[in-house]
């Protein structure tokens, strides 16, 4: 983390909670840079997270009000906090298991309701903290602690899911493209409506080692290959598997 971002961190926090090679630190830095560039008033900003690795991005690191909730319920807690005090800028940041599996119902209903909330999904396509089990975002055929012969199911495309539920601003970024990511985060935070950013973030510890990507470098290379940027065109290359398009998805 750059020294210039330290003002947003609690002085009591000395170490990163993330594994070597985890992408969540890049997301954390990108989020703080977006906040810095927007000049957001941290006194009136509330960060809400659920349970899992990504929930540790704001809590206890950010020098702001943080609400570290139950598994899956971050969006529901955030809804009450925002409704009771509309002056607050409420930013939910949590993982794909938290937001899209156990908390999937809250996510789609918040998108439908269109209350002003920013929801950031740190999507590593696996349950990291509990030991690498299959997530609703794990690509089909990939190996996890609960799918040792390969995930038999199709993953959620969170962008399509949340957009289908009515969210006015939906974007997908990746920690391998931090400058684009900062741009999406800024637009999402500045939005007066419900905004969702799916952020692809590698998990070498739990995901990589089971899928022959046993170095952080190999994970980042795979993520680069997985992502289709806006500049590369709207469609995945012919025959490409597991391709996810980056960019903003708005009418």
């Amino acid at each position: 983390m750059a020294r210039s971002m330290e003002k947003y961190l609690r002085p009591e926090v000395q170490t990163t909670p993330f594994c070597p090679g985890c992408g969540h630190g890049v997301l954390m830095g990108s989020l703080l840079r977006a906040i810095d560039q927007l000049g957001l008033d941290m006194k009136n900003t509330l960060f809400v997270s659920g349970i899992g690795c990504a929930a540790w991005i704001p809590s206890p690191n950010f020098a702001a009000d943080t609400l570290h909730t139950l598994h899956g319920r971050a969006v529901a807690f955030a809804t009450g906090a925002k409704a009771a005090n509309p002056e607050l800028k409420v930013i939910v940041i949590s993982g794909d298991g938290d937001l899209a599996s156990i908390g999937g119902n809250h996510l789609i209903h918040a998108a439908r309701r269109n209350l002003e909330l920013t929801v950031i999904c740190a999507n590593n396509m696996i349950y990291g903290m509990t030991g690498g089990q299959m997530a609703p975002t794990t690509p089909q055929g990939h190996l996890t602690a609960t799918s040792v012969t390969g995930n038999p199911y199709r993953p959620f495309d969170l962008v399509k899911l949340v957009k289908g539920a009515g969210a006015p601003y939906v974007a997908r970024g990746a920690v391998t493209r931090p400058y684009e990511l900062i741009g999406y985060l800024k637009k999402a935070i500045a939005s007066p409506e419900f905004a969702f950013v799916d952020v692809l973030s590698p998990c070498p510890t739990q995901y990589g080692r089971r899928n022959k990507l046993d170095s952080a470098g190999a994970m980042y290379e795979r993520l680069r290959g997985l992502c289709q940027s806006e500049a590369q065109g709207a469609c995945a290359p012919e025959g490409a598997e597991d391709t996810l398009q980056l960019g903003e998805f708005n009418d």
Partner: peptide, 26 residues
Amino acid sequence: GAFMQMEDEIASISSVVGASWSGAKA
């Protein structure tokens, strides 16, 4: 005040806890 019809009872009580920390009797 504020009223929210939530998607289930889990969300209801979660939102009530969030609202209470936002300063509202909930």
